[in-house]
């Protein structure tokens, strides 16, 4: 019998939503939440002996201590296999799944497996350290994710050979394997070139790694004369969310005039973000977008000017493509408005 420990967050553990995201880890015997479906998919050769539940914010605000606490809990069950998630496109959950899987693999030396959407930040952070089953971006993909996780999990536990990412459904780890082809390299290369010239589809045998890095710009020379703009992915908007920016998977951003606004108050601003407990930001949005202290600094001459507009969107579940599109549009405006530096806050 393969003994499995499963990890889920406070939401899937049925404890609560964002208002419970700060709960400390706990371990329960048997299955909880999505563990039920996972248990069925794993079949009779495996058993989920325990489930760890932890709040997403607690984990991400205390990565090291939370990992150590959870590792100790898992150890007491001496499992043969550890599964975390699936996390879909929940960023903090994905980071938690990846961090714990890595710690379990290194400390307990057992196979580990998690599952998430390819744009989850946890995927980029951990895809080289473990198998991450590629899932849809939302929990509606649970029905497809669970069998894929179970199938790969059993293979890993039985130490079977693992096929390519495309065959097994995991996120590519950047590993190359030697194999024999019937046609020699020069012929394959010419075939690819001919296909390309004809505008036909072809598949490269060596995809170039995607290094999307931007070099840092020169620092601000004289802060006391600089125009500083505020940008946030924390969803701060004028009270009532006039442009109806979505609480997750945002399709738009907002641009708001703060000329003469000295302080963001409960009566005037709030957050539209659905991915964290909004209580604190709704009481005082300066906790996310520090307008009050920048006004003080403007008065004191520490900065030249706080730019008249701030830009905002909700960063949870919002696709990389949309985020890029929003920012490349408003970055041009910032440039045209003579903004010399940006403070971007994230929750």
């Amino acid at each position: 019998m393969i003994k499995v420990v499963h990890y889920i967050n406070q939401f899937y553990g049925g404890i609560g939503g964002e208002e419970k995201a700060d709960i400390k880890p706990e371990i329960r015997e048997g299955v909880v939440g999505p563990g039920m479906a996972l248990k069925a998919a794993l079949g009779k050769d495996a058993e989920i002996v325990a489930t760890v539940i932890c709040g997403d914010s607690y984990f991400n605000e205390n990565i090291e201590t939370a990992t150590a606490e959870i590792l100790d809990m898992i150890k007491t069950y001496s499992p043969d296999l550890f599964i975390a998630g699936p996390a879909f496109n929940a960023g903090r959950y994905g980071v938690a799944c990846g961090s714990i899987c890595k710690a379990v693999k290194e400390n307990l030396n057992i196979p580990v497996l998690t599952a998430m959407y390819i744009e989850n930040p946890g995927a980029d952070m951990f895809k080289k350290d473990m198998f991450i089953v590629s899932t849809a971006n939302a929990a509606t993909g649970m029905r497809q994710a669970i069998p894929a996780v179970a199938k790969l999990a059993i293979k890993l536990a039985n130490k079977e050979a693992i096929g390519s990412p495309a065959e097994e459904g995991y996120i590519p780890q950047g590993i190359r394997k030697n194999l024999f082809r019937t046609e020699r390299g020069s012929k394959r290369a010419v075939n690819m070139l001919v296909a390309k010239l004809r505008g036909e589809a072809f598949e490269t045998e060596y995809p170039m790694p995607d290094f999307d890095r931007v070099a840092p710009n020169q620092p601000v020379q004289d802060m006391s004369k600089a125009k500083i703009a505020l940008v946030t992915s924390g969803g701060i908007v004028p009270k009532g969310n006039p442009d109806r920016i979505e609480s997750s998977s945002a399709s738009k951003y907002g641009k708001y005039d703060i000329e003469g606004v000295m302080d963001l108050t409960e009566a005037t601003y709030e957050t539209a973000h659905g991915g964290y407990d909004p209580v604190y930001a709704n009481i005082d949005s300066d906790r996310v977008l520090p307008v009050d202290v920048l006004r003080d600094m403007e008065k004191e001459g520490l900065i030249g000017k706080l730019h008249r507009y701030f830009y905002t969107t909700t960063g949870n579940g919002t696709s990389v493509a949309n985020s890029k599109k929003f920012a490349s549009t408003f970055a041009q405006e910032l440039l045209a408005d003579g903004v010399q530096a940006v403070i971007l806050t994230s929750t």
Binding site: D212, P216, V231, S323, F326, S328, L334, L335, V339, V342
Partner: peptide
């Protein structure tokens, strides 16, 4: 978003809680 702002030549500082994500 930080990268797109940096790309047009404006220096940007990211204030965030989960540094590994940044």
């Amino acid at each position: 978003m930080v990268k797109e702002i940096e790309r047009v030549g404006i220096p940007v500082v990211h204030i965030c809680t989960v540094v590994p994500i940044s």
